[in-house]
Design a protein around this nucleic acid. Structure first.
Lengths: 153, 153
DNA sequence: CCATAATTGGACCAGAACAGTACTGTTTCC
DNA sequence: GGAAACAGTACTGTTCTGGTCCAATTATGG
């Protein structure tokens, strides 16, 4: 379905909420604040901590804090932290494409991947919080799309 | 991992190959021509037929044919045909988001979805065949990306 | 006009990946 | 020393993808 994992969705919600607090925040607090189940939000924060998106403070009075302001964290960074690298096909960069010789299109998917990564890198968590899109998005902000439900024409 | 299904990859390969033939082509022929297992390529073509990407002719001497030239079929159309709608999260357009009131970001994912759809609509199957990217891609072709493996900064 | 063969169409089943949960261990404050 | 909170690992249930099989349909040949 070309949809990212629900964990990533939770991560964005939690990070945005975390960015609205200046103090270190615990998982239970963030759970109550976002509505995400406590074990799940804990898991998400754990992963984000390992990836350097948030910094953690262990022990009593511990919690999590953003490693960077919301404006500096791109959607692509969050997705890569939770879901792993953004690669639409396995047939990229030395993947295990068993029909590489016959399929005809060498590594053309790389171009598609780059396009998506670029689109995702241009959107930050601050953009997700605010309902206004910054100008950095260039021509990407909800343009008149030429694609219909079925075909392109 | 934000990767699309292998079926979609197969679909692109099969469609490009199909675009190089002017006659109706059967699944077995396309299988031998692409290296994709016969049942799989048959399934892919079947789905593409229901979505109107290809036209089918049943019975003996039947087969498949492109409904439109390769230049008119976008990657987005193929992905939507195989994988379903491009919606990164379930929390879009009346989805089953159970924390809509608490999560804070209303339908901001729509913006992300639109950006990806736009990027995918700009690439056609003809672009996948040829190794040159058309000018319609604008600023999307492998730009200097500001995103690192871990964080954005 | 009928039988046969070829081919698509739709349904079914197995395998893997993911989401979610629980438990144990380590660290820090009181 | 006790309590609170993160860190890491392991497990289970569910969903989805990938692949296979059988039924419906049509052109061809007799």
């Amino acid at each position: 379905m070309l949809k990212l994992s629900k964990l990533t969705d939770y991560a964005v919600v939690a990070l945005v909420r975390l960015g609205q607090k200046s103090e270190v925040t615990t998982s239970p607090v963030l759970s109550r604040s976002t509505g995400i189940p406590e074990p799940t939000v804990a898991k998400v924060l754990k992963i984000l901590a390992t990836q350097g998106i948030v910094t953690s403070q262990r022990g009593a009075r511990g919690g999590y804090r953003l490693a960077q302001p919301l404006e500096e964290i791109s959607i692509a960074a969050v997705i890569q932290a939770i879901d792993g690298p953004i690669s639409l096909t396995t047939c990229v960069d030395g993947g295990d494409c068993d029909a590489r010789s016959t399929c005809g299109l060498g590594g053309q998917w790389d171009m598609v991947n780059a396009a998506i990564r670029h689109a995702l890198s241009a959107i930050t968590l601050a953009d997700m919080k605010n309902h206004t899109v910054t100008d950095r998005l260039g021509g990407l902000h909800v343009p008149p799309m030429p694609d219909g439900p079925e075909a392109t024409a």
